[in-house]
Design a protein around this nucleic acid. Structure first.
Length: 294
RNA sequence: GGCUCGGUAGCUCAGUCGGUAGAGCAGUGGAUUGAAAAUUCACGUGUCGGCGGUUCGAUUCCGUCCCGAGCCA
């Protein structure tokens, strides 16, 4: 496995168990069941449940659940801290090693596809994002960054969605920071991650749309009853990433008196439904996950 | 009871000087390796409220009825 990561050695793929699925599919409950059966401990793989202070908004595991078995990496980041998939990986790997050293199995639970994939397949050897460079690139017109990417790395440009500014910008960023074409770095990784994927184990929880939508509605109701409004009120100075959590913008509008509670809930429901659909699309491609229809 | 607006896609509405209609949102499907709860692409047939009338042809004009909002009694 050629993962040029210096200090970071990935856990063996067969040593972990993954419980994936869209939001509100019942991952936490299922993960607990699995963990109890196989002697496991719960490991968070949700980008937003990583944060402290938004446990209710993000529907993080309850105190009751957490009392049953050890839960790891929930509420460990300050709202002001930024994360990305690699930062998550650096954080999660030592904890997984520690769990394994005690003879337990980490049950990786969460819906953040990209984060999960860094852990399951390993990270590509690309340079990290540079906020200053991103700011600079964000100020340029799309055609310009497309042109620059096409000039520096035509191979990558050809397989990038050139209408998606985020991806164009990232590919260009990699070229500029690495000093070599992004495409060559990416190809190395794709080959390396193939073998690893064959040994992965996990399930994908699937529910029919109607049920999932109903559960999302219940979940939204529950976060309000649990105190999500207070959490959002206390979110001053949060990292830009955390600001993007579903519910933050909507509840801010509620607090500003722009919309009423019913409208706010419906906006959050819609955003959550759309997110769940994107997750389903993502996990469908992860062929190694055994599909489990609830 | 009288008058005035409205009734068009699941929702909010545009439009057709008469040739059976299109936006936003919702929804569905896709993409995805350091922003990912992010970002992004594709997909639009519905008795144009009902019934009559005029017309070659009505969602559009006329009549009438039903429903909603407002104003006057």
């Amino acid at each position: 496995m050629a993962t040029p990561l210096m200090d970071l050695k990935l856990p063996a793929p067969e040593a972990m168990f993954f419980v994936c699925g869209p939001t509100a599919s019942g991952k936490s409950a299922h993960a607990l069941e699995v963990a109890r059966e196989i002697g496991g401990e719960i490991m968070n793989a949700d980008a937003f449940q990583l944060y402290r202070g938004v446990e209710i908004l993000t529907a993080a595991p309850s105190e009751g659940d957490r009392a049953m078995l050890p839960h790891h990496l929930y509420g460990v980041l300050e709202p002001s801290e930024a994360v990305d998939a690699m930062a998550y990986l650096r954080r999660v790997v030592p904890v997984i090693e520690e769990i394994l050293s005690r003879g337990k199995t980490p049950v990786i639970t969460g819906g953040s596809g990209l984060y999960l994939k860094f852990l399951s397949h390993g990270p590509s050897p690309l340079p990290p994002g540079d906020p200053a460079l991103r700011k600079e690139l964000d100020a340029l017109p799309l055609e310009e960054i497309v042109g620059r990417l096409q000039a520096l790395d035509p191979v990558e440009a050809a397989r990038t969605d050139l209408r998606n500014r985020r991806y164009v910008s990232r590919a260009l960023e990699v070229c500029l920071m690495a000093g070599v074409p992004c495409s060559t770095l990416r190809d190395d990784w794709e080959n390396a991650s193939e073998e690893r994927a064959e040994k992965l184990r996990g399930v994908f929880l699937q529910r029919d749309r109607e049920t999932l939508h109903r559960r999302i509605g219940l979940r939204t109701r529950a976060i309000f009853e649990g105190g999500a409004i207070e959490e959002v009120r206390g979110l001053e100075g949060a990292a830009a990433g955390l600001e993007k959590a579903i519910g933050v913008a909507e509840i801010r509008r509620l607090l500003a008196g722009e919309i009423d509670r019913t409208a706010c809930e419906e906006l959050i429901n819609a955003a959550t439904r759309q997110y769940a659909k994107r997750q389903e699309t993502w996990f469908k491609r992860e062929a190694w996950l055994a599909q489990r229809i609830c």
